[in-house]
Design a protein around this nucleic acid. Structure first.
Lengths: 397, 397
DNA sequence: CGATTTAGTCTACGTTGTGGACTAAATATC
DNA sequence: GATATTTAGTCCACAACGTAGACTAAATCG
């Protein structure tokens, strides 16, 4: 008889469950349902969660005491009987901050627990001309000012996440390569000294989460972000897909044509060489994106042809992505959001042509509604999500 | 202030935790640790799980009573003190059955809870020449006989999974299209009438799980399966990745060349047209795989060139897969396992050339060790995994 | 053979959810 | 306007499950 030698079938989480864990889970369940539905009475929460009215009352009392929820007024469902008291997420205490370093700006967004954007700050600056240490110092200043302003309006910022345009080693906050910024081997987390915990994460991934939580994202979609480099964030069942080492979503180096132009990565025919910003501007013989858009609006034939070819290449690469990772929807962000009117038809047509007839409907291609805010909002959303997932941790502060 | 309109950040599981759920989780934790480490004493379990010796004793007593574990003898760790009693998974009661329909055989494997293969049955038959209803009836007969034999040796087969070579609607067990079998719109689950619950699942996915649990699979890898159609199963952190609708892994229709030969799916330049079995045999001008292998062994130049081109195409398609889903390792199964000696160098070389220098080491390409057993073992492993993940359910039978 | 070490069992206790009794707050009916 | 009825929310004794220290059991060392 053959004895198995592989990985175990069980998926041990290594975590025993005790009474405190049980309570934490039920607190999270109640808070999550309140968030999902806007507001609920205790009786409704008991019905939805299956817990007894007694238990729900106790859990809600704990959440009120922690400042995570508030009572928001009475509400009646039927004709008779005691009216219930609505409980909703409190936007007046806990908040999170999202940070972003992009090519030509630094930005921060403060978001409260009810997911309202309470503060927006953007600073225009050419980050490619600056040293990483200076960029990060300037960002730190922006954050400290924003946090002070948040405190002034009664908010308690519990943490943040920083979006950078390149793959990130999540355990160290180290950025090996950010082509849009011209950065290599930058210890971003180490350089970022702030009086609150801030993690570092890839911009495309955070923008995808931003679309999910603040945009029109369905639970499963592929978000495409792009400047010089092109990245993708994949959300499946409301969760980010990262791959084995966190380097999934390198759409920019998917092969469009195996004998195509040589890429800076060393391979040939990468999407970036067709649809990256540099490739687009070169094909249209213009110096920047604003000029390209002007020419497109003037229906300049060379500019339109450049967009057509970029759209075709995006469609080919996205057809491979759809075959491999099976998203419901494709959301175009970054420069592709700005160029959407001139890209969408070609992308969708090429996608349809390359997907064939065997997988039913072609995933719709939509434009990001959040524009340049997607990544910073996704960053803040990560922290909000953590608080809602583990309210018991907030009870002890 | 902008109010969020997207999906909630919380990920409600909708499941309250009560005392019985707490016990079920701790039972699963203990059983999972015993499975992971082969055998453990109660004292060691207490140390590993963090539960008290009292609690572990009670949990182990429940598992022994359910026939999931047995005491296997005394063992000593240090020099002195009372020797501990080893507890290990019992292979003598609970078992699962894996089923597989492939092009030219039907097979079943009975696997016990200790993941030993206790029974192997394979029936050679040309399934493409048969009607689906007849194929499934023949499979049913094979299963009933195998289950009877399992009962004879004291095993209790609690359920099974059937592997079919095509995408499967998991909720209905419906197979829309299985190109290797020539099937379209087949209600497989409905046709399969058996005295035990059997689910239906895609063969490439199950083979990937087979490699994970019974082969040499690391926790993250891409398994490539192929006959006429080419599919891939992606395992990330020990879990199968399915995509939004369960149609991920369609490696066979990833574009190798955007202007390549027309595929039966309607697109151009799909991998299948370069590396699928029909394409390979046509390029080598042979009638079947055995003949191709004979010619390869005789170093026939046309046969070698056919393999070279298939390997090149695989390398191009796999480079897109690696960029998008970031696996650690690539495992070649199906016909590619048989052709591995003539494919491996070209696949690895092309992969390296197309990945460029920006993502560190190229994922190693290895051959499946399980051969044609991978899918059936993966299928049985699914049921075993379910029992180990929820032993409390087994306590009530 | 007693001291020491380690495993495993026993038992009272603490935490958290349950379930029925009860109070509170409303409307419908007479 | 008083009573009956309906529904929300609180009170309180109880059940389930893990904890922690006491205790027994099984070994080796000196």
């Amino acid at each position: 008889m053959t004895q198995a030698t592989g990985q175990t079938t069980g998926q041990t989480t290594g975590r025993a469950v005790r009474h405190d864990a049980m309570r934490a889970r039920n607190l999270a369940l109640v808070l999550g349902e309140v968030e999902a539905r806007g507001s609920l009475t205790r009786a409704a929460l008991a019905e939805i969660t299956g817990l007894t009215k007694t238990t729900v009352s106790k859990l809600v009392a704990d959440l009120i005491e922690a400042g995570l929820v508030v009572e928001a007024g009475t509400v009646r469902d039927g004709e008779r009987g005691r009216p219930g008291m609505e409980v909703r997420i409190s936007g007046d205490r806990i908040a999170a901050i999202g940070l972003e370093i992009n090519v030509d700006y630094l930005s921060v967004r403060v978001v409260d627990l009810a997911r309202s954007v309470r503060l927006r700050r953007t600073q225009a600056v050419d980050n490619r001309a600056a040293q990483p240490v200076d960029v990060i110092a300037a960002l730190g200043d922006l954050v400290v000012k924003a946090v002070d302003e948040a405190v002034d309006i009664g908010l308690h910022v519990v943490g943040g996440v920083l979006a950078v345009p390149g793959p990130v080693d999540l355990s160290t906050g180290f950025v090996h390569n950010a082509p849009n910024l011209g950065w290599r081997e930058v210890p971003v987390a180490e350089l970022l000294r702030l009086p609150l915990p801030v993690l570092v994460e890839n911009e495309a991934n955070l923008a995808a989460l931003g679309e999910l939580w603040f945009g029109a994202g369905p639970p499963d979609f592929l978000y495409v972000s792009g400047e010089i480099g092109i990245g993708a964030g994949l959300v499946v069942q409301g969760r980010l897909f990262r791959g084995a080492r966190g380097f999934a979503g390198e759409l920019g180096h998917v092969a469009v044509s195996p004998d195509g132009p040589l890429c800076r990565c060393g391979a040939r025919g990468c999407l970036e060489r067709y649809a990256g910003q540099d490739a687009l501007l070169a094909a249209a013989a213009v110096a920047d994106l604003a000029e390209l858009i002007s020419l497109l609006e003037a229906t300049d034939s060379r500019a339109l042809a450049a967009c057509e070819r970029a759209g075709w290449a995006l469609g080919v690469a996205l057809s491979s992505a759809v075959n491999l990772v099976d998203p419901d929807t494709i959301v175009l962000g970054g420069i592709f959001a700005r160029l959407f009117p001139w890209l969408a038809d070609t992308v969708t047509g090429t996608l349809a042509a390359h997907l064939g007839q065997m997988r039913g409907a072609v995933p719709p291609v939509i434009v990001s509604r959040l524009g340049t805010e997607a990544a910073a909002l996704g960053a803040a959303g990560q922290v909000i999500r953590q608080v809602i997932a583990d309210p018991a941790a907030a009870l002890h502060t």
